[in-house]
Nucleic acid binder design. Structure first.
Lengths: 116, 116
DNA sequence: ATAGTTGTAATCAAGATGGTTACAACTATA
DNA sequence: TATAGTTGTAACCATCTTGATTACAACTAT
């Protein structure tokens, strides 16, 4: 399918589709050649997780949680807030990511077949 | 401490502090009276989790993941995409929230005492 | 009564996001 | 090879979001 076709179905500008496909290509998930229409998967469906896609289109880059890069070193709370909080926030992010890693594109396709 | 004092330490506008304290008050975590300075906790520190604070200041309201409220019903993928994806995304969100629920303010205060 | 504080609406600037246009580079096909 | 159709990407613009700021009413302790 061409980016124009997908765009008209998704009801969005073709450039947005191309940008997203470019991200997936950069992440090594699909291959898309300039000129001829269509994109082809590079990896097997059971080797592509939701996390792969999630990180490919990186809505989130690096840390999910961010706060106050330069807290006041004179403040007893501010001085230690990152030492206290960062590990817990990282744990929460990891929990989310692990859940996304547990679902593959093959899983979704199976669900889709059942529904159709 | 007054909102002005906190604001100068955090290096932010006092109104921002007041807005955040208002959110925490609305969530029943602290009490803050207009007029006199300072805020007092309403619940015990071991009864306040990171999730309570996270949801009180609601950077995220409702769903963490959002995509395409009105997909094309003519499209075999779009027609079923929410039925296929939503539960997995909800699971990921729950995993993150559960992790935040496992850490209390008392935990953080203990860590802080060790560091100080 | 007064000085100092919180609550909140209103406004503004800055940054982020997505939409759109435009065009070069590329590919398959006749 | 010429051509029609497609992708890649830069550039620009409108819109939304976010936080900063001002202003002032309502409140509290002394």
């Amino acid at each position: 399918m061409t980016s124009d076709f997908i765009a008209s179905s998704v009801n969005v500008n073709p450039v947005v589709i191309r940008r997203t496909l470019s991200s997936l290509k950069a992440a090594g998930i699909i291959d898309v050649k300039a000129g001829c229409g269509g994109a082809t998967p590079v990896k097997e469906a059971d080797d592509i997780t939701l996390y792969d896609i999630y990180s490919a289109v990186d809505c989130v880059e690096g840390d999910l949680f961010n706060f106050h890069e330069n807290p006041n070193p004179e403040c007893p709370v501010g001085k230690n807030i990152h030492a206290v909080l960062d590990s817990h926030l990282a744990d929460a992010q990891t929990a989310l990511e692990n859940e996304l890693k547990s679902v593959t594109l093959a899983d979704l396709m199976n669900q889709l077949n059942i529904l159709m």
